[in-house]
Design a protein around this nucleic acid. Structure first.
Lengths: 295, 295
DNA sequence: TATCGTGCATAAGGAGGCCTTATGCCAGAT
DNA sequence: ATCTGGCATAAGGCCTCCTTATGCACGATA
């Protein structure tokens, strides 16, 4: 389908001029000078091979050719304008956020209601995915990911630090007469014992790491699931305290030590640099940053 | 109606790319390079604020946004293409020729059938107007006019010289025993005696011009009408012999003298320089020039 | 597993399309 | 007769848009 269309800029100018029946007013609408309109109309007429306007004193009128063209061109542009306008609205109204399960369930989901109330026109769709998404291959607006925040091409805003400390159910703690010092932990099963976090924690507390070898409990690899197991009294697990404030407050979990390990990782909000000014993205960023600061 | 449309060039590229689901093929269709397509898509995506394609290995696919946009944009462009295509056809098929009545009735009309047969796709519309039309104000493709052929901005092609010589009906000539020499004309009524041509003719033949003052016959100002009057035997008139070959051959008119006055004026075919390559205009010009040469 | 091929992205550079300013011209209105 | 509104035209400059060249990722192929 080779393209026999005249220059599109000229067509757009013609469309406006035909609606206004005036080059001057068309220029005003298009934000350019009358001379430019005159030029573009001439270009189009030469391409088409026929005059489109008759230049009468103090007015222009469409020729038969122009008269045939005008309604079609206007219709075409109305479709275009409508499509892009609607796209803007609907695109502005759907925000796809991709994050890991833990963050979504423990931090984001409980707060999303507030955002929805502040921005009723933006429909957030939460997508949960473990691997880091590639913005150029997946249809995603925003991700929340753990890491160091150095992703090229992405704006990364730190939300909360990745910290962890042992947690367990009060009943499990009571079963060994309470957890008073780090070494007490070794008396209990370690949930998700393959987790490198345990190595970090054990060495930070001068405890042997060989205990990890003797454990055979399944790795669930999601704080949510580990926490559920811990609350059921199946063992001790390392959790991010920010995520489990409620459970601790409720007494479903206890955090025996104030010490919290921080390896310098954090949870980051990230989105492509090129989209930093998209309204819905700005709105979500502004909101979540404030939430993170207040939490 | 301010124009929120993204750059139209980018939209056109998007339209092709969306149809092909390939930047490379779109580039081929548009006659540009793949890099240019990639660039324009990126421009559009930044303007829209949302990705329109997902870049997958060895293919691109439309995002939800692109998917909503594509059919609308394609429809819009189909309308445009259709409008301009049809315009080309219909514009190519209607030729408006403006000329004086004499030329139309005596020369052009009798020959137009030949042109129609050679170009059945071109519908000629003859417009008769006495004054010289202004191409920028009237909707006309071609004019035929008498003059010197020096009209700025117009291509002027000489068709036939403006010549004239007395003509009258055989009966009228017989009524004075035949017309043998110029002075015989003075015995008869001169039709359209205000015509400056008579002055020219009379002085060219060393005859007094005061005869014109004594005449009171109406001036009809159209050779066709003068000729009709002459054929009815009402007087002598000056006619362009090329126009009245048939009448002379039939015996309805006689041309008593071979001498023909030529003041250097001519009938010209004229059209705007800028439209010299419009097919229908070229076709008509080529045909009429050949006709004029053969006549 | 190493190499090749395909398709898109990116950088640098240049040409020309397109817009602006300035001015002229025409004809209707005052 | 002058003024005014509206389009045309000329000259000039910017910036868009395209090209060339190259890189990169991934699938296919051997």
């Amino acid at each position: 389908m080779p393209d026999y269309l005249p220059p599109l800029a000229a067509i757009r100018v013609f469309e406006a001029a035909a609606r206004h029946l005036s080059f001057t007013r068309a220029a005003a609408e298009l934000g350019m000078t009358q001379a430019a309109v005159s030029y573009q109309i001439k270009v189009l007429e030469e391409r088409v091979g026929a005059p489109l306007f008759l230049r009468r004193p103090r007015e222009v009128v469409l020729t038969a050719a122009g008269l045939r063209l005008a309604p079609e061109v206007t219709r075409s542009f109305e479709i275009l304008r409508g499509a892009f306008e609607e796209l803007g609205e609907r695109e502005g109204g759907m925000l796809i956020v991709n994050t890991m399960h833990t963050f979504a369930s423990q931090w984001l989901a409980p707060r999303l209601g507030v955002f929805q109330m502040q921005h009723p026109d933006i429909a957030v769709r939460l997508e949960v995915m473990q691997r880091l998404v590639d913005f150029s291959r997946e249809e995603v607006d925003i991700v929340v990911r753990a890491g160091k925040g150095n992703w090229p091409g992405l704006v990364a805003i730190k939300l909360i630090d990745v910290r962890f400390t042992p947690m367990l159910s009060p009943e499990l703690a009571a079963s060994i007469g309470g957890v008073h010092e780090p070494a007490d932990i070794l008396k209990l099963p370690l949930l998700d014992s393959k987790d490198p976090w345990w190595i970090t924690w054990l060495t930070a507390n001068n405890l042997p790491t060989d205990v990890l070898e003797r454990q055979t409990l399944p790795s669930m690899n999601m704080q949510t699931l580990d926490a559920a197991a811990a609350m059921a009294g199946q063992g001790v697990t390392l959790l991010t305290p920010e995520y489990f404030r409620r459970e601790v407050a409720d007494g479903r979990l206890i955090q025996p030590f104030d010490q919290v390990i921080d390896e310098g990782n954090a949870y980051w909000l990230a989105y492509p640099e090129s989209r930093r000014n998209v309204p819905k993205i700005r709105a979500f960023r502004d909101w979540i940053v404030k939430e993170a600061a207040g939490a």
